[in-house]
């Protein structure tokens, strides 16, 4: 029995050699750009002096860089901000994408549906560098559109990008605006895959649009909703460097400074390669644990596997 499966495996491999060869460039790229650079992780344990070179006689300091990180005055604030911003983005981002998918699904006019889809899909492709300029103008307390509008109702100008009370909310809302169209695609595809006969049966039984959504569409989407939410756990320490870096300032460090921006300031501006590699490694380990746990849950509870 064993021999047979071994043989069939080898046969299958031989039969698929052309496919494996096609895969080879990608494997090489991953090795060269993802696995080999992992050697650089040794910097996390060194008092790294760039002038000695990565293979030079660097001084080993054990966990010194990790100790250094945890004695930084801002480290806990930064971890807290990262978690809060990432979780808010995951929760509200998912809700926005699901709602959009449901609304698009209910839209009867194909033309309107396609137009809306294209419009909400578009911001995904604009870089945060450009968007930061746009949002800075739109949200300006002096002559921004948003504050001008609020002013009509007697609301005093709010500095969304410079006030700690509003900064996180601004990050979440602008991030959702940029990505909800793109994120809704998977949900829309799931809805399309739901058996239409279920709707017909419900309709015959007298269920209205809302009841159909509640009892057929949402349960039909539940697996993918839970699955995507769990898989997003791997991103729990990624609160969006591009966005935060381009929108934040010292005035909102309390609520907006995240791990990645701290690493940037440490590593690239401060040339502290040891501590910044240590932060990166720590982040990778936490993400690996979270994504592995999430994968395990997805596998056991929802029978979802990658392979």
């Amino acid at each position: 029995m064993k021999n047979k499966s071994k043989k069939s495996g080898w046969k299958q491999f031989k039969r698929n050699i052309p496919l494996h060869l096609m895969l080879l460039p990608a494997v090489i790229l991953v090795l060269v750009f993802a696995y080999i650079p992992m050697y650089g992780l040794v910097i996390a344990f060194q008092n790294f002096n760039a002038a000695k070179g990565i293979f030079g006689g660097q001084k080993w300091i054990g966990l010194g860089n990790f100790t250094y990180i945890f004695t930084l005055p801002s480290i806990w604030r930064v971890f807290g901000n990262t978690l809060i911003i990432a979780v808010l983005k995951i929760i509200f981002g998912t809700l926005a994408a699901i709602t959009t998918a449901l609304l698009l699904n209910e839209c009867s006019s194909k033309g309107v549906k396609k137009s809306v889809q294209t419009m909400i899909y578009f911001p995904h492709f604009i870089s945060w560098i450009i968007l930061a300029g746009v949002f800075t103008d739109i949200l300006s307390p002096t002559d921004g559109v948003v504050n001008s509008f609020l002013g009509l109702f007697g609301v005093k100008p709010i500095y969304f990008l410079g006030d700690n009370k509003y900064f996180r909310g601004t990050l979440v809302v602008t991030d959702i605006w940029k990505s909800f169209g793109y994120n809704s695609i998977v949900y829309l595809a799931t809805i399309t895959g739901i058996d239409p006969s279920l709707y017909e049966a419900a309709s015959i039984d007298g269920a209205g649009r809302w009841k159909q959504v509640w009892h057929i569409t949402l349960p039909g989407m539940s697996t993918i909703i839970i699955l995507l939410t769990i898989l997003s756990m791997g991103n729990i320490l990624n609160a969006g460097f591009d966005q935060v870096f381009n929108l934040y300032s010292a005035a909102v460090y309390d609520t907006g400074d995240i791990i990645d921006t701290l690493v940037y300031r440490l590593g690239l501006q401060g040339a502290k390669f040891g501590p910044s590699t240590a932060v990166g490694l720590l982040k990778s380990i936490i993400s690996l644990v979270l994504i592995s746990s999430a994968y395990l849950i997805a596998w056991k509870k929802f029978d979802y596997t990658v392979f």
């Binding site: 696995y35 992992m38 050697y39 992780l41 040794v42 996390a44 344990f45 000695k52 030079g56 006689g57 660097q58 001084k59 080993w60 054990g62 990778s284 380990i285 690996l288 592995s292």
Partner: peptide, 26 residues
């Protein structure tokens, strides 16, 4: 994935002394 990470940190520790010796020699 897990082993490669462990190997990285493991090799870091195991080669630490060698690295220092090498550096001193250099």
């Amino acid at each position: 994935l897990v082993l490669s990470l462990a190997a990285c940190s493991g090799s870091g520790e195991s080669t630490a002394d060698e690295g220092t010796k090498e550096a001193e020699a250099q």
